[in-house]
Design a binder for these strands. Structure first.
Length: 552
DNA sequence: CAGCGCTACCACACCCC
DNA sequence: GGTGTGGTAGCG
């Protein structure tokens, strides 16, 4: 008995000393219970800008989500948290039923599509076939425009169809390839679907869904040189120029090898009998809300689920469940950083200077930056070239052109021009590095030199630079067997590398204790809204035992 | 108290034939 | 009638 008492005393003394060494915080700080885990970040805002401001102030890899919380008018509040933490609370599907990813403006993202048509208005339409044909067309366009290779196996295909409406989301999982932002994605999608606009535009075309013969191609019968005439009300000159340019490009690219694609399968009727595209072009706007995997619109019980005909299977991992993998893959702005990442762009307004200087018909295959290019060794070599005779030249900016594998450096301070045999007084020069042919040459911004299209002799790149380049390329081949061997990818410049694009491999799903607390803001009403969003739209679901809302 | 970013559409002014 | 502009309902 005495022994037992002594043991208990010792136990209590030990506990007391433990609390003396590690006292409890005076301030109550709710967090996921494992102290070694990252702190809980779960903040709600009424305003999107506030949410983004918080993200900026946040060191962790957090993202903005929109939560629908009122039936009818689609009112939303904004949640900031990590992908990991969101999934933790989200996966049970007992709460957070109507969530949207906010695809941030100016953030790199994946290629994605929203597809839909009304079944009643399109009785003959075969949705699955249309999806398959679209994917085929997109893959061809990616190959033609960017030399990016992909197939249906790289496309996460999510279904949200009902008896009334065929509805899909496609999210492309390209290897080491992303778009600059979702505006560029939209530009690319519109460019790629240009032949389909011609089809809709042709008023004399009384095609009905039943007669959507796949051999029938209005585009091929309508020469590109007829120009863009369908958008009678359009005032967007840039857009038209772009389409025209693109038509030329398509012509150039396609004429020799194949005729223009038949996109008649993309044309569907809306419920008032007007012709529309199967592809919703309204989803490429700034800060677009894109419904999450397994979320439904408020007031409806139709969540996005992996489609029957989905062919993308995430790589199995020990730490991350299959569902979590699908969730992470479905996030449009969840971009894994890699040092061989290619950032695709597709501009509408043509950069005239570039077109003039480099005889480019499209700016859709370039990346650009300041001071440091993806090839530091070549930067060093260029700096060596422009530091002569006591003049300290520098790299003002650089552009990389994928098809030509051409690095174009705009030089500052150093103005020596081979054409005139002296330095220009007020115009800067360029150094161009041709990686394909391993040579460099000089051009310049001077109007006279430009007028005569001056280009200096070519000089071979020094062996060190060539060697480094070859070594890098070998690395790339060994790490990515699917890479198109016609393409050499520059590395993502470190200046624009962002940790925001990565997600933590830490997975909290395993080994977590039983008490969890969600942190809300000080705003009671907001907390109520959050609670509603957690409860689902009708508010009759029970609060899960392990979930407590703490209002500070 | 409290969403956001558009576009299609309309009304109207102005211009020119 | 053609074209530009400005405001807004309503879509995604």
């Amino acid at each position: 008995m005495k022994r037992k008492w002594e043991a208990r005393l010792k136990q209590i003394e030990e506990r007391a000393s433990h609390y003396e060494r590690e006292p409890l915080s005076l301030v109550y700080r709710p967090r996921l219970s494992k102290p070694e885990e990252p702190p809980s970040i779960w903040k709600l805002f009424h305003r999107q800008t506030q949410a983004f401001n918080f993200v900026k102030s946040c060191k962790e890899d957090v993202h903005v989500f929109a939560l629908e919380y009122k039936v009818g008018d689609g009112q939303r509040i904004y949640l900031v948290t990590t992908y990991t933490q969101l999934w933790f609370y989200y996966k049970s599907r007992r709460n957070l039923l109507h969530c949207y990813e906010v695809i941030p403006e100016n953030a790199v993202c994946k290629l994605y599509f929203d597809l839909e048509f009304n079944r009643l208005a399109n009785p003959g339409a075969d949705g699955k076939k249309m999806v398959a044909l679209l994917i085929e067309h997109v893959c061809k366009a990616l190959q033609q425009f960017y030399r990016v290779r992909c197939s249906a196996e790289d496309v996460l295909n999510l279904d949200s169809s009902t008896n009334e409406k065929f509805s899909r989301h496609l999210i492309f999982q390209l290897h080491d390839v992303v778009f600059k932002d979702n505006i560029h994605v939209g530009n690319f999608v519109r460019k790629m679907l240009e032949p389909a606009f011609h089809l809709i535009a042709s008023e004399d075309d009384d095609m009905t869904p039943e007669t959507m013969g796949h051999e029938f191609s209005h585009f091929s019968e309508t020469p590109v040189k007829q120009g863009i005439s369908f958008s009678k009300k359009s005032t967007d000159k840039d857009m038209e120029e772009s389409w025209t340019t693109n038509s030329k490009k398509l012509e150039r690219l396609g004429s020799a090898k194949q005729s223009s694609p038949d996109l008649s399968f993309l044309i569907v009727m809306n419920n008032v009998g007007e012709k529309h595209l199967f592809v919703d072009l309204g989803v490429y706007t700034r800060n677009r809300n894109f419904r999450l995997y397994k979320s439904s619109k408020i007031g409806k019980y139709v969540p996005l689920e992996v489609a029957e005909d989905n062919k993308f299977y995430p790589v199995q991992s020990e730490n991350i469940s299959k569902e979590n993998q699908y969730f992470l893959s479905s996030l449009v702005s969840n971009v894994r950083f890699s040092d061989t990442l290619r950032i695709l762009t597709c501009d509408i307004s043509q950069n005239k200077q570039r077109v003039e200087n480099f005889n480019h018909t499209s700016t859709s295959e370039t990346i650009e930056g300041f001071q440091c290019s993806p090839y530091p060794e070549i930067d060093q070599f260029v700096l060596l070239l422009v530091n002569k005779n006591g003049i300290k030249g520098g790299i003002r900016r650089w552009n990389y052109f994928f098809p030509e594998e051409l690095l174009v450096y705009d030089i500052c301070k150093y103005r020596w021009c081979e054409n005139i045999g002296r330095a220009h007084k007020s115009n800067n020069i360029m150094i161009l590095v041709d990686l394909k042919n391993e040579v460099w040459y000089q051009k310049c911004h001077d109007p006279i030199c430009k007028a005569e299209n001056f280009k200096s002799d070519c000089f071979p790149l020094p062996a060190e630079v060539r060697l480094l380049f070859l070594l890098k390329e070998e690395e790339e081949f060994t790490t990515d067997e699917t890479r198109d061997n016609e393409t050499k990818n520059p590395h993502e410049p470190s200046s624009s590398a962002s940790s925001k694009g990565t997600f933590s491999d830490a997975d909290w799903d395993n080994g977590i204790d039983d008490a969890y607390i969600l942190e809300a803001t000080e705003d009671a009403e907001l907390a109520e809204a959050a609670e509603n969003s957690l409860l689902g739209y009708n508010g009759i679901d029970e609060i899960p035992d392990e979930l407590i809302i703490e209002v500070l």
